[in-house]
Design a protein around this nucleic acid. Structure first.
Length: 417
RNA sequence: GUGCCUGUAGCUCAAUGGCAGAGUACUUCACUGUGGAUGAAGAUGUUGAGGGUUCGACCCCCUUCAGGCACCCCA
């Protein structure tokens, strides 16, 4: 194009349309969060790199975080995730907070990755955690928050599914197969990636890990056993709670769900669109110890994160994004001519004092003013011309129905628009 | 960070080595107290950028930037 300075790679501009959709999304997830009693919080976007040093898988920080030195030479990162910040905030006030605490947050994050569909370098993320509980009901509650959110935005259980597994169960089953404690972490990572690799490549990788033929077959059997959850007391409980929470349609057992982050210790889950090739809409799980790495007393919890990018892509694919977001409650006051401008300004002032949002047009052909109002997406246009002035009225036109009424000017405030 | 694909008017796309086009949107008018239609006229480009090959490049080659897909990782 022209010589417009480019935006930073992987960032997005939110024009009013897109901003409106983002705000709509935030309101939905706020609603889902608050309906379970979760409180909103926020941390800084800048953190010391030490905060991430011991946590969350080394690649996330080493290779994917934006890191720079401040003017004093201290290494600073743009936060790539929120959990360490949450851990710090909880640890700092561990003796004052009321547990289990229910917190949610929505804010920007940065990861220096190659941008592609569903993945940008700057993105927004909904984080929600229940900290201070090891109860299975806590795990179920987070599933319910996720499912209720999906319902709120119009995603039905035939469009999205929340896939659940438990690392303790998988750990036990792998032990039964004879997998050593040393190879388990790497094998779990391989299980997480099974659908991304060709069959033979995947088996080759397992061989390289030292698994023999029988163990590879046993692993495969494990991963195709959708009834495996019945061997887990926790999952059995979980699924009975899930039914009571009314979200059974949305939740399904899936032995392949492991999750990449190391700190999950119990239940893990991801929400996926069922047909297309979308990335996970949201993902999370149960952790045994949130704060130990930042120097607090051990605290278990459960939580998940949802990026704004994938869920919006899925919503768009299903035609579920709101379309009529511009100026839903705004009045558009036309200006009949230059002489009437002062009186139109007075009218807008009266209306604003009554609490209305008002846009004032500029003197021009009325046809242009109406066209402008229409294109802006305004619902109601007000007309104040010589006739109206003589009668003490204002013309109120509904731009959708083309109906126009004449309303006494001093009764405008009581009109229910 | 690795591999592959794509980049033409605001948007969606044609033109495959020989004068850069269409649809749509936009501007003006028909319509000087009223926006959805119709008709007429008008405007729009360093073909992402830079270099090379050629008499001649949107087209072929190189570099670079951006986007897409897969890997990696993960929201």
């Amino acid at each position: 194009m022209k010589d417009i300075i480019r935006s930073v790679k992987g960032t997005r501009d939110f024009y009013p349309d897109e901003m409106g959709r983002r705000q709509w999304l935030v309101e939905k997830l706020r609603q889902a969060s608050e309906s379970f009693g979760y409180e909103q919080y926020e941390g800084p976007c800048l953190e010391r790199i030490d905060l991430y040093a011991a946590k969350s898988g080394e690649e996330l920080v080493k290779e994917q975080a934006f890191v720079f030195e401040d003017r004093g030479g201290d290494p600073i990162t743009l936060r790539p995730e929120l959990t360490p910040t949450l851990a710090r905030m909880v640890a700092e006030k561990q003796n004052q907070l009321i547990f289990p605490l229910r917190w949610w947050s929505f804010g920007p994050f940065w990861r220096y990755e190659r941008p592609q569909k569903g993945r940008t370098r700057e993105f927004y993320q909904w984080n929600i955690d229940l900290v201070g509980s090891d109860a299975v009901q806590a795990d179920a509650e987070l599933l319910a928050v996720a499912a209720d959110f999906l319902k709120l935005v119009g995603l039905q259980s035939n469009m999205v599914q929340i896939l659940v597994n438990d690392r303790r169960l998988m750990d036990r089953k792998l032990t039964e197969i004879g997998i050593s404690a040393d190879t388990k972490p790497e094998l779990l990572r391989m299980i997480d990636r099974i659908d991304k690799q060709p069959e033979d490549v995947w088996e080759k990788n397992l061989e390289d890990l030292g698994l023999d033929r029988g163990q590879i077959e046993a692993t495969r059997t494990l991963l195709s056993n959708t009834q495996l959850w019945q061997e887990s007391e926790e999952l059995s409980q979980l699924f009975s709670y899930v039914e009571a929470l009314g979200i059974g349609e949305y939740v399904r057992y899936e032995p392949k769900i492991i999750r990449g982050l190391d700190y999950y210790t119990g239940m893990v889950f991801e929400a996926h669109e069922v047909q297309g090739d979308f990335r996970a809409i949201l993902g999370g799980g149960h952790y045994a110890n949130l704060v130990a790495d930042v120097g607090g007393q051990p605290l278990p919890g459960v939580g998940f994160a949802m990026g704004d990018v994938v869920v919006m892509l899925v919503l768009e694919a299903y035609g579920l994004l709101p379309t009529d977001l511009s100026y839903p409650g705004t009045l558009f006051v036309t200006v009949f001519n230059q002489e009437m401008l002062i009186e139109s300004i007075r009218l807008t002032t009266e209306l604003r004092m009554e609490g209305f949002n008002v846009i004032l047009a500029e003197p021009d052909k009325l046809s242009r003013q109406f066209k402008l109002a229409d294109r802006l997406g305004v619902k109601l246009a007000l007309i104040l011309g010589p006739d109206e002035m003589a009668n003490g009225t204002v013309g109120v036109k509904d731009l959708r129905t083309f109906e126009q009424r004449s309303i006494l000017r001093n009764e405008l405030k009581s009109i229910n628009f």
